[in-house]
Every structure is written in C-alpha cells, then in structure tokens.
Amino acid sequence: MLELRNVTAGYGRTMVLNDVSIDIPQGGAAAIMGHNGAGKTTLLRVAVGLIPVKSGQVLLDGVDVTKLRPNGRVRRGLGYVPQGQLCFPQMTTLENLQLVSRVKSEVDEVLDTFPALAGLLPRRAGLLSGGQRQQLAIARTLLTKPRMLILDEPTEGIQPNVVAEIEQVIVGLSQRGDLSVLLVEQHVGFALRMTDKYYVLESGRVTSSGAGGAGAEGAVRAAMAV
C-alpha cells in the first residue's frame, strides 16, 4: 500500500531522515516510534508529500508518487491527521465536517464512528475539549474515504478516558481490512496494541523493526533506550 524506499529528506541543507525504508501493506497497521527529534513527523510529512525527498522513493500501491503533490496523494487514498487536534475553531462541529462532505449519509457514518460528536454538532469547534477536537480531526479525514490513514500523535494532550475511545476507533478501523494505518505515537503500549508492525527511529534512521503486539513492548523499549 505505502512504501518508502531508502528515503533521505529534511529541511534545506539539514537532512532529518537518512536512508529510511518502511512498508505498510494493504490492510496493515504500523507504528513509528522514537524520541523527540528522531524524525517521526518528518517521515509522515514526506509520505504525504509536504516535504520533498533528496533521494529515495515514495510508492503508493506500487506506483511512484515521489513527485506527486499532497492533493494528488489524497486523491489516491492518503488521509493525514497531523498533530495538534486541528480544526476551524470559529466554525461549528457540523460545519467542520461539511467542509469535506455535505452528503448526510457520509456525515452520519463518521458520527456513528465517533458518537460523542453527535451531540456537539452546533457547538463551535474551538470550544471543544482536546479529545473532542481530535475525534473531529479524525472524523473529518475519514470523510475523504482514505485507504491509508496517517496519524501523528493522536493521543497527545488527551485525557486517558478519551484516549481509550480513540484507541478503540483506530483498532476498529485497522481491522476492517480495507484501510491501512500508519501511526506515530509516544505511548509504546498504546501503539503496539493496535499495530502489527513497528519501526523505531533514532537520529533519522531505522534502528529496529519487527512485529507489533503487546509482546514486542520489551524489544521496543530496549531499542529506544540505546
């Protein structure tokens, strides 16, 4: 589904990623982990097309999209939820969703996925809690009907009870079989519970990788402790 082959990329003359390769198959779920500054967000931004590569390739369904702009990648099935619970704060919850789709059945479908939003449709998005805004950000991206959902720190700054709700949704999405998930997450246990593959980044390089699941937590923590 999504593959980065030997990607080197960064900002100006500063390279943040160095010869990075990852592979997320159709219907698969992978977590990118590492300390702050390891290059995790840069990797996602390269995948989406927000940062050009100096060398290497980005492939989507086996097609080289390295030079394709972000909107072209969205049309090919990429959905990106960046850090920060982004929304349009002066618009209502419903208006935020309708920016993507005004088809009632489609909006109803994402509200079924995030039922907490159903009672918040008239409320300005800027008045929602951090967890509610994060659910709104994911719901809005799902309205684009992605086949690959890319999430950057979806639990950052969110209360534990809402984290559990978001985890349940992501697990459900990844188990559908028609949606791949690429996740950057600081909480190791959370990330491994919902993914079947992990990669650890250190100083812009993949230093460890393997099968996900709760049994991999020790190996991941050991890799991150180096």
Rank of each mutant, 00 (worst) to 15 (best):
G10N: 08
M15K: 05
L17V: 14
Q26S: 15
M33H: 06
G37H: 03
G39L: 09
T41W: 02
T42L: 06
L43N: 10
R45A: 11
V46H: 03
A47V: 06
V53R: 05
K54E: 10
G56F: 10
D61C: 03
T66S: 14
Y80F: 11
G84R: 06
T92S: 15
Q98W: 10
Q98A: 13
V103K: 12
K104R: 15
E106H: 06
D112N: 13
D112C: 01
T113K: 05
A118H: 13
G119Q: 14
L121F: 00
P122D: 07
P122S: 06
R124Q: 14
L127V: 10
G131F: 08
G131Y: 12
Q132D: 08
L136Q: 03
R140A: 00
L142I: 11
L142H: 03
L142M: 01
L143T: 03
T144G: 00
K145V: 04
P146S: 10
R147T: 09
R147N: 05
M148F: 07
L151H: 07
E153H: 00
G157V: 07
P160V: 09
P160W: 13
V163M: 08
A164Y: 12
I166K: 03
E167H: 14
V169N: 02
I170F: 04
V171I: 13
L173I: 08
D178H: 05
D178T: 01
L182M: 10
L182V: 02
L182G: 02
Q186E: 09
A191K: 04
D196T: 11
R205L: 00
S209N: 12
A214D: 15
A219R: 14
V220G: 14
